[in-house]
Amino acid sequence: MISFSYGNSICCRFWEDECVVYNQLTGSTHLIDGLGVEVFKAVSEKKSSRSEFLKNLQSVFDLPVDFDLETGLDNLLLEYQKLGLLQVMENSPA
């Protein structure tokens, strides 16, 4: 099972369909919109298992039938991990 989280060094603020994320370790501030906002909302609400999150996204976004949500999400998670905003972990199934 893949899950994602952020450490104590990350702060988020949400406004409507956008958020800003601050990384205390790098001092950088990021503007996040679209799918990314749902990622950070999920983390802040501790609903951060990838499979659970994918189900939730299907209901939030009106996505085209052929949209590869799983790949889109994985690319996004990877990008946020590179920026030091998220930790993506592969856990053993409970």
Partner: peptide, 23 residues
């Protein structure tokens, strides 16, 4: 509001100095 946040941060003299308190 999120875009306004970024624009104010860019126009601040000490946002980076203050760290999370500034955020």
């Amino acid at each position: 509001k999120a875009r306004a946040f970024l624009k104010v941060a860019e126009n601040s003299f000490n946002y980076n100095v203050l760290g999370v308190v500034g955020f």
